[in-house]
Structures are given as structure tokens and as C-alpha cells.
Amino acid sequence: MDIVTIAVFLALVVAFVIRSWKARGKLAARDRWALITSFVAAVTGFTIASLLINWVVVPPAIWLVAVGLLAGGVIGAVLRWPGLTWFAGTRPIGRTIAVSTSLFICALIIGVAVI
């Protein structure tokens, strides 16, 4: 269980880092909402990790590594921000629905955990 949760946690954080720093290619964030969504997903990963991982047996250093990655991703996201539009592509309605759904799910998970 811990291994799966750690994998999901790190995957969400690493995905944010890659999407922030890559300017081109399939994995690159195409627009600002992609950056925001990816960042919120990474924060959700931290929430899940905090609740579900057994930190008595899993080294808390993993958390600190993830924090370092997240901070690195933030630098990439801020530097790319001016060069991105809010919405890229030709299907703004589809993008709006996808972004809203992602943010809603993340907000729900964080909300249940925090409130």
C-alpha cells in the first residue's frame, strides 16, 4: 500500500516538474491552466502522502526530496508563465471542462483532508 501511494505521490510531483520545465513536446504544459492544474495535483499528492503513507517505516527524506522537486517545478512554472496563454488549442470548452474537473477533484480531496 505504501509503495503504491509513494509512487502516486512522486509521480504527481515529477509530472509537475516536467510540465513546468519542458517547453516543447507531449509532456510540456501547453498553457497556464495546465501549469496550475499540474501544481494543484502535486499539492494533492502531498495531501494524500501525509494521510496515507506510514511515515514510521517510510523515510521522511522522501517527503523532503518531493518538496525540493516541487520548489524546482515552481521556478520552472514562473519562468514559463509569461510565454504562455491561458488557453492553448482550438477546443476551449473541452479544456475548460477538463481543467474544472481536475481542479474540482483535487479540491475535494484536499477539502476532505483539511476541513
Partner: peptide, 21 residues
């Protein structure tokens, strides 16, 4: 932009460290 990026990253890192298990 670099200053803002580093500042935000520092804030995120600080919050992350404070929230560590």
C-alpha cells in the same frame, strides 16, 4: 521573473518542510 520564481519556490519549500511528517 527569476526573483519572483525563487521567492515563490522558497515559500513552497518552507511550507513543505514545515508540513513534513
Amino acid at each position: 521573473h527569476i526573483v519572483v520564481a525563487v521567492a515563490l519556490a522558497a515559500i513552497v519549500a518552507l511550507l513543505g518542510v514545515l508540513a513534513r511528517p
